[in-house]
Design a binder for these strands. Structure first.
Lengths: 241, 241
DNA sequence: CCTGTTACCGAACAGCGTTTATTTAATGTC
DNA sequence: GACATTAAATAAACGCTGTTCGGTAACAGG
C-alpha cells in the first residue's frame, strides 16, 4: 500500500561518496541483519521489514542478504526463535518463584500473557499471522534448515514446558482428570485467546487486568476439582516492573 | 515471493482480440468482483487475491476495480462481512434449537467453532490476520464507508448476540457473577483460542472433537455456579450435516 | 605477490497496490 | 435521430516488493 506511507523513516545510510565496500564475516553480518530486521519490526511492524529496508540499515544491498539467509522467512524465523526464547525464559523464571504447583502454573500463564502483550508485533508474527510463506516453521514443525536438524524449534520447547506441568498436575490429582495433552491444548487456547483478543482490538478500552483475571478464574475454576482449596481464588498479578 | 509460484492458475479471460469493452451496472460489477475475490480466496488463500487476479477473472483491468471499491481492503471487508453474516445466522439458528438458556449458549458457541473450522481461510482473514492495512474495520469498529453510516458491522452484531446471552444468564443467576461484558469477552477468547489453535496447526493430528469438548467443559465448569445442575455435563456435538 | 574463494554490488525480472489521463459505451434530452 | 452528458472502462505509469544473476573486489592462504 504505497498510499498511506510513513515508511521512509528508515535512514539512508549513505556511507560516503565512495562505495568502498567492507567485507564482514558471515557471523557478524548475520547478527547485523537480524538486529536491523528486529529494529524495523519493533518500530513499525511487519510492513517495515523489507529486504531493502534491512539492507539500507545494515549498509549493504538487498542482494547481499541472500548470502546469509535463504529467504526473508528465514530472517523472520530467526526473530520468532528469539521471541520464543524470551517466552520460555520468562515463563520459567516466573514459574520458579512459586512453590505450590497450581500457583506455578498460574504464574507461568500470566507470564505468557504479559510477554505476549508487551511484544504485540512479535506475538502476532508468531501466533496470529500466517506470514505468507512462513513455511509452517511453527510450534509443531521442525525448522527446514538442513544444517540444524538436531535442534528443535524453541516453540516446541515452550509448549513442552506447559505440557509437562499439566501432566504432573493431573498425575498428582490436583487438576481434573483428562488427557493431559488435550487439557494442555485447552489451557493454551484459553490463554492465547485472551492475548489474541486484546491484540486484535488494541483500541478497545477495556480493563486488561480485569479481563485477564476473569479469564484465569474461569479457567482454573473449570480445571480444578470440586473440592480443591484453590477454587475461586485468583492469583494476584505479578508486581509491576 | 515470486519464486515458489503455483500462482498462475488464474485463467487469462482473454475476451477475444477486440477489446470491446462492456459496461455493467455498478451493482452487477460489484457482485462480480466480490465473487471473483471470494473464489480466489477459497482456492489459495489471501496470496491469490490480488487486484490483477481479480480483474483477470472478472474480465476487466485492475484499475477498473477502483471504480467500485475504494481499496483492496474494501473488497476483503466485503468478504468478511459475508462471513460474519454466516456466523450470525448459523449461531442463531443453532441456538434457537435449544430451550434451556445454558444449552442455548453452548450450542451457539459450538456453532461458532464449526463455522470457523469449516471456513478456515475466512476465519483467519477476519480474526487472525492483521491484514496489512485492513483498516481496523474489525469487531469493534464502524466501517469507514461514508455511504452507509447507519448499518454497523456484522461483527458488532455477532458479538452483541453473545453479550446479550451472557448478560441474561448472569442476570438470572445461572452464570457466575461478574461484569457481563468481561465474562463475554472471556468466553469469546476461550472459543476463539480453540479455533485459532486448530487452524494454526492444521497438520497436527489431534482429535478435534475431544479438544472442543474438553474446552467447553472446562469453560462451563468455570462459568457455572458450584451447585448448578449443568456442571460437568458436556453438550453433545450437533449432528453431522 | 599471486590466486582462490566469496561477500558484495548493480541491474534486472515479475509481481504488487494505486493513480492518472484518456477513451468510449450507455443514457438521457431535444 | 442527433447531440451532450456521465461515468465505466482502459493503457500506462509510479514506487514498492522478494528474488536472481553476472560480474567485481576484498580478503586469506600459499
Amino acid at each position: 500500500m504505497p498510499t498511506k506511507s510513513a515508511k521512509k523513516a528508515v535512514e539512508t545510510a549513505d556511507r560516503g561518496v565512495k562505495p568502498v565496500r567492507r567485507r564482514l564475516s558471515p557471523a557478524e553480518r548475520r547478527i547485523q541483519i537480524i538486529e536491523a530486521a528486529r529494529a524495523l519490526f519493533c518500530e513499525g511492524g511487519l510492513a517495515l521489514v523489507s529486504m531493502r529496508n534491512i539492507a539500507r540499515r545494515v549498509g549493504i544491498t538487498q542482494a547481499a542478504i541472500y548470502q546469509h539467509f535463504e529467504d526473508k522467512d528465514a530472517i523472520l524465523f530467526a526473530i520468532a526463535e528469539e521471541f520464543f526464547t524470551r517466552l520460555i525464559e520468562d515463563g520459567m523464571e516466573k514459574s520458579n518463584e512459586e512453590a505450590d504447583p497450581i500457583a506455578r502454573l498460574k504464574r507461568g500463564l500470566r507470564g505468557y500473557i504479559e510477554v505476549g502483550l508487551s511484544r504485540p508485533d512479535e506475538y502476532r508474527l508468531v501466533f496470529m499471522t500466517n506470514v505468507p510463506g512462513f513455511k509452517r516453521r511453527g510450534m509443531h514443525r521442525v525448522p527446514p534448515g538442513e544444517e540444524a536438524p538436531v535442534e528443535l524449534t524453541k516453540g516446541k520447547i515452550a509448549y513442552a514446558f506447559l505440557q509437562e506441568q499439566v501432566r504432573d498436575l493431573i498425575g498428582s490429582g490436583l487438576l481434573c482428570k483428562g488427557d493431559p495433552e488435550v487439557v494442555a491444548e485447552a489451557v493454551w487456547a484459553a490463554i492465547h485467546g485472551i492475548v489474541s483478543l486484546i491484540l486484535t482490538h488494541l483500541d478497545f478500552p477495556w480493563a486488561r487486568e480485569e479481563l485477564i483475571e476473569t479469564q484465569l478464574r474461569i479457567l482454573f475454576d473449570g480445571l480444578l476439582p470440586d473440592g480443591s482449596p484453590s477454587r475461586g481464588k485468583v492469583q494476584a498479578a505479578s508486581p509491576k516492573a
